[in-house]
Computed example of a mutant assay.
Amino acid sequence: MWWQAAGILLGAVLGAEVLGRAAGWGALGAGSREGHRVAVTFDDGPSERTPALLAVLARHAVKATFFVTAPASERYPALLRALGVAGHQVEAHGRWHRHALLLSPWREWAQVRWHPRAGGAGPHLYRPPYGGHSPLTRLFARLNRRQIALWDVEGRDWTAEQATTLAARTLERTEPGSVILLHDGPGVTPALLDALLTGLRDRGLEAVTLNDLPTRRITFWAGLWRLASSYGA
């Protein structure tokens, strides 16, 4: 019956979002909680804000990881090159900045397959826009030899809060091994980054790239903890 097929499809969609994004089982997440390193990451760039972010990172002598999109990379090729020249890790955020559930299977295949340094040394990381998953996201990532990289702390720089407030709240949630999500684009992000890096240093935490953290796969128990945190338990 059609409603049974619809129910199966809905279950697959909800399962992909809950297990793939919220729990994150099998994706790369936080690093060791026993060390003193954290990773600062940026989504959506490069953008007109990239030079300011690079200046803040250089002033603090910090390397970060940038998840870039195809349209932004094509629009700002010089800034994309600048990220690599400065020694930052550059990874993929997709051919389109659209949730996986809004893409047809063949477009999601192209979404996952694209990478700004395709053909270079791997492993190649892919961070889905919004962290969103379809029932096919993990399969496509495996077939394209991509590792999905998520995060455990959000800087929430897409809100209207002041930089100092955002930095303080981000620091409250940050632990050793945390992967912090910021965005390359919002006007508040350079000031937020400056305050955040100062706060991390004062706490004895070193900001590094994801490769240097290094990240670990999200286990069953870590995924349960992420689920509980996502739904306010």
Rank of each mutant, 00 (worst) to 15 (best):
L227N: 08
Q162P: 14
G7L: 14
R117Q: 15
M1P: 14
Q147Y: 07
R201L: 12
A168G: 09
G29W: 10
S32E: 09
R142T: 08
I8K: 05
Q111I: 01
P129T: 12
W106N: 05
H183Q: 08
F42R: 01
L205S: 04
D43M: 00
N211S: 06
V13R: 09
P71F: 10
K63D: 01
G223E: 07
G15Q: 09
A30Q: 09
K63L: 06
W2N: 10
F140D: 01
L19F: 10
Q111Y: 06
T215N: 12
L80C: 03
D194R: 04
F220C: 10
L28G: 05
T137S: 14
V112Q: 03
T69Y: 10
W225F: 07
T219V: 04
G199R: 04
V68K: 03
W2F: 07
W158A: 02
S32I: 03
A86Q: 08
H183G: 03
P186V: 00
R226S: 02
I8L: 12
A191G: 08
L150G: 07
T159V: 09
G122T: 13
A64V: 00
P128D: 01
R156L: 13
T215L: 13
L166C: 05
S47N: 07
T41M: 00
P77T: 03
R217V: 10
A23F: 09
A233V: 15
D194P: 11
E91L: 01
S229V: 10
W151N: 06
G155F: 00
R98M: 06
G177V: 09
R33G: 15
A78Y: 06
A141G: 11
A191N: 07
V90Y: 13
R173P: 07
T189N: 08
V112E: 01
H99A: 15
S230I: 06
D194G: 13
Y231W: 15
L9D: 09
R98C: 05
G232P: 06
L80N: 04
W114G: 06
E206I: 12
S47E: 08
A100Y: 05
G131E: 01
G120N: 05
G187L: 12
G20P: 10
G29D: 12
H124N: 04
A149G: 05
G119P: 12
P77Q: 00
Y130H: 07
A121Y: 11
A39K: 09
A70M: 14
Y231K: 12
F220E: 11
Q4H: 11
A52E: 11
